[in-house]
Nucleic acid binder design. Structure first.
Lengths: 297, 297
DNA sequence: GCGCTCCATATCAATTTGATATATTTAAAA
DNA sequence: TTTTAAATATATCAAATTGATATGGAGCGC
């Protein structure tokens, strides 16, 4: 059979302390056990590892050679154990999430902030990607969790949990301010003006595409912004009408040149979802973040 | 208590093969045992290491982290085991000996030659030193064995075994050839001529110092050679009278200008001894060399 | 649905380990 | 020299662990 690796641990300790008796106390064992263990080990290896004397033991040349390897090996194991234990105590670790910009702005930034303060040793890696990209990263296990805006296509291996609903509003710059003055606008009216939106491969695009389709309209934005952050400045400079979450307008005084355009029918609510793999085998850091996100409710 | 390192071996194997069943066959065990072992390990570490499925198991993030360390560790252990086993099979290894020049020339060179042919993988490190130096190296465990000429001072921690006796003869060059023609010379006569010898810190010097003292003479060599090899050339060029082992003259025709000077009383025999530490904890290569040296008898 | 393959669980004998008492060795102290 | 002390070696038996077998359950492909 194989040589018990526990014998090697005993070997390691005995070699380190140069004494069966001392090693026994360190290993919470007793001297006769170690004597027996080393004897077995020597028999299995077929060589003598220690020179015994009345004042302790010393490594033989063979023993030294073995010790060179074993000591390196065991220090690695100890590092491994340490890392696991640090991760368990949330003193260290890594959690990776994918988040769409809207989800980031409207929901999880404050959560991440709290998480970071509570567990400063844990690194948070955020991939700021569109919902479909996040789903793909999830499937490849490149991120632990994704927080994205619906609609998303979750395959069989993913599960999603609705976290929060939010509503978007239409906004225009100074040039479009007048549009909203005669009461609610209809989609059809909006469609006559240039529209600023995100790229076609985002759930936001998908959402508005479907929304317009329901009214028999084609959603054909004139300007595709690369990031949600760019929409407000584009609107501000009168390049078109945009749709942004209500939250984006908070703390943005009208003096900024951005005006909410009242709609005849409000844009349906959208959902922010947490998505993760079904066989969730997350590390503790990710589990804890998930818990905090869900606790936000 | 500590985590059994045998559990880590099981972890290593299961991770490597991605299957309890396969790992079980490799480890000559059975699947339920591994299931139990990994379960215990997970409980002790406090985290899940594998995602089980119907087609095998996969590492969790925590498991991956652990595996990084454990795999390195176990490869080291395997190297260690391999090295021991190679050394055991005499395919590799190192044996270090200290040998005085006389011992080298008169005795062990042919043995080393045979040893080398028989075990080409084992390196032989020869420290060509004087007997007292060899003793010191032995005491510091810097060499495995020493083969030197008596007399030597072995402390309590060393043991010596007589290997062979040899006799030295006085030799002179062309200029001293006539000395030997009227029958045996006495030491006193020799003492009148310049003498070539080794340095004061050699057992050879010690030997002749005592020998001369017994005849009430002082051994005062005019020339101290650094190595025994240099004695014959010095003698050849008529720089003095030297003492060399009979063997040194074998195959050296008189044409070389070196002549044995017959003595009234032959120089007492000297011994070549094997010396080693009492608690001999030699590796197999050294043990085998010792065996071959003793077998020479 | 059936059969196949995998992991999970239960159980008991066999082995190994843990613990204590005691013997032996050896160097240093009296 | 004898004693003492400190280390390892040996013996023994209960306790814990491991090995092995039988069995159960879940998922995948046909």
């Amino acid at each position: 059979m194989y040589i018990s690796y526990d014998y090697y641990r005993i070997f390691y300790c005995v070699a380190k302390y140069g004494s069966f008796t001392q090693a026994a106390t360190v290993l919470l064992s007793n001297q006769p056990n170690l004597t027996r263990a080393i004897k077995n080990l020597e028999a299995e290896l077929g060589c003598t590892l220690f020179v015994r004397s009345n004042k302790g033991v010393k490594l033989t040349p063979d023993g030294e050679k073995l010790y060179e390897h074993i000591s390196i090996a065991f220090e690695h194991i100890q590092h491994g154990e340490e890392e696991i234990s640090l991760s368990r105590s949330m003193q260290r670790g890594l959690v990776t999430i994918g988040a769409s910009e809207i989800a980031l702005h409207c929901f999880i930034l404050p959560i991440l902030n709290r998480y970071r303060q509570r567990y400063p040793g844990i690194r948070i890696k955020i991939s700021n990607v569109s919902a479909p990209q996040a789903v793909s990263l999830l499937k490849d296990s490149l991120i632990d969790l994704a927080v994205v805006t619906a609609p998303i296509e979750v395959g069989g291996e993913l599960i999603e949990k609705k976290l929060k609903t939010f509503r978007e509003v239409a906004v225009g710059g100074e040039a479009f301010r007048a549009l909203g003055e005669n009461g609610g606008l209809r989609l059809q009216q909006l469609a006559e003006y240039p529209i600023v939106s995100l790229g076609t491969k985002t759930s936001t695009y998908e959402f508005y595409f479907r929304l317009f389709l329901q009214s028999g309209l084609t959603f054909a934005p004139d300007i595709e912004a690369a990031t949600a952050d760019q929409i407000l400045p584009l609107v501000q400079h009168n390049l078109g009408i945009g749709f942004v979450p209500e939250d984006f307008l908070l703390g943005q005084p009208h003096a900024n040149g951005i005006y909410e355009l009242p709609l005849a029918e409000p844009i349906p609510e959208r959902d922010i979802c947490l998505v993760k793999k079904k066989n969730h085998s997350l590390g503790l850091p990710a589990k804890e973040l998930e818990r905090m996100i869900l606790a936000e409710n």
